[in-house]
Amino acid sequence: MLAPGQGQAQRRKVPEPKAKAGSAGKRKDFFRIKSPKIQYVRPDTTILIETKDLPDDNSDEAKSIFFNPAKKLSIVSEDTTTLDEGEPQIVEMTEEVLIDSSWIKVAGYYSIWDTRNINPYRVDGRRLRDTLNLQLVEPTKQRFARMPLRTTPLTSDFGFRGYRWHYGVDLDLDTGDSVRAAFDGVVRISKWDGGGYGNYLLVRHYNGVETLYGHLSKALVAPGTFVKAGQLIGRGGSTGRSTGSHLHFEVRYEGNPIDPERMYDFPDYKLLKDNFQITSALFEYYSKALRAKAVAKQRSASAASAARRMVTHRIRSGDTLSEVAQKYGVSQAQLRRLNGNVKTLRPGKTLRIK
């Protein structure tokens, strides 16, 4: 028999010692929070639009433009410990998170957090009605900008390329070169995309901009990691759909790709300005992209149709022009016209019928 209160004392858990700040092997992340107070909110549906299917493969790259994911956003129904489980969530919170010695309101910075989908926002940038002024550099708050590579030779621009739109720029590098964060922020995605980006990282920044780093040989940071501008986050490579070592670099706002050359002067290795304006005009290229895709699809269909209309015959020993013409129901004159006025049929050669 136990003395009164002894059982309760034995069942009481001993509190675990708190980890010291800056302990070795511990990464700095944004999950150190004050006691939260959560208010469930209804998303603004005035700017949500239906998902559009792109006629490409199922890679993250192909699914990253404007209207994805197809799954509808749901209202958060659990506490904030689920924020890193990969599902899109919308939260409004009075709590703040500690990021590099600064307490930042979650409602303004992590309103949607998704560690799987590049574009969980489903916002069409062409519908923006206001001009948004973003501060890219804020020296008073010790927030700066850096280039993603030590040198930035541009090998491919933003725009239509081949049969699809290229939603970033390609920067030349050697496999293993250091890839660095463009601004302060938190890693939202670290993932493999075999049919597109290969190993890639996506970082969410203070100013609402997100940057994507594709075709890495190795990612060095995990989702939730706070990174400073210029911090090493990966190694360059040629993974995924790539024909050679390079960095595919994207700049996005609410999932909408922006031409990085509107923000960066790559040859001179610097930002064009310390601030940046977001307007609907930045995203008018998407209408052009849709038209270009439609034209490419039509040309492909025309070529396939022309191929289907062409009929050929493999000549065998003993074939004569009259027998081939009779077999396919065409005249000998037509066979001669389509085959350079052929007179002698050589076995193994191809004879065009129509």
Rank of each mutant, 00 (worst) to 15 (best):
S156D: 03
G185I: 08
L272N: 14
F266D: 02
G195P: 08
H215G: 03
G244Q: 15
D259A: 14
V209F: 09
A281D: 15
L216W: 01
V169W: 08
S242V: 11
S178D: 15
H166Q: 10
N199Q: 08
E210H: 07
P260G: 07
V221I: 13
E254F: 12
K141D: 11
L212V: 14
L171I: 13
T151P: 00
V251K: 04
K228N: 13
M147E: 11
T155M: 09
L232D: 14
N199C: 04
L232T: 07
S238F: 07
I189P: 05
Y285R: 06
T225D: 13
M263T: 14
Q142P: 01
F183T: 00
T211V: 12
G208E: 02
P139V: 04
R150Q: 07
S245F: 07
G240H: 09
M147C: 05
F160K: 09
I258E: 02
N207A: 14
K218L: 10
L282I: 06
N256I: 10
Y253E: 03
W165G: 12
S280L: 05
N275C: 00
T175G: 08
G230I: 00
R161M: 13
S156I: 01
S280D: 09
R180A: 08
P260C: 10
F158Q: 00
Y269F: 13
G224N: 02
A219W: 06
V187L: 10
A181H: 09
D157R: 06
G237T: 14
L173N: 05
K141L: 15
Y264T: 06
L220K: 12
F276T: 06
P267D: 03
L271I: 00
D274L: 00
Q277W: 00
T225C: 05
G240A: 09
F276I: 02
R204E: 13
L232Y: 09
G198L: 06
L220S: 05
Y269G: 10
K218G: 11
L272K: 15
R241N: 15
L212I: 05
T239E: 10
Y200T: 01
G224W: 04
G162R: 12
H246P: 05
K273G: 01
D172N: 13
D157C: 03
I233S: 03
P139D: 05
I258W: 02
K191F: 00
L216A: 14
P223H: 00
G244D: 11
F283Y: 13
R161G: 04
G196L: 03
N199G: 02
L202D: 01
V186N: 02
V203P: 02
I233M: 06
V186D: 02
E138D: 14
A281S: 10
G194E: 06
V227W: 00
N207H: 15
L149C: 00
P223L: 01
G195F: 06
Y167P: 04
T239I: 10
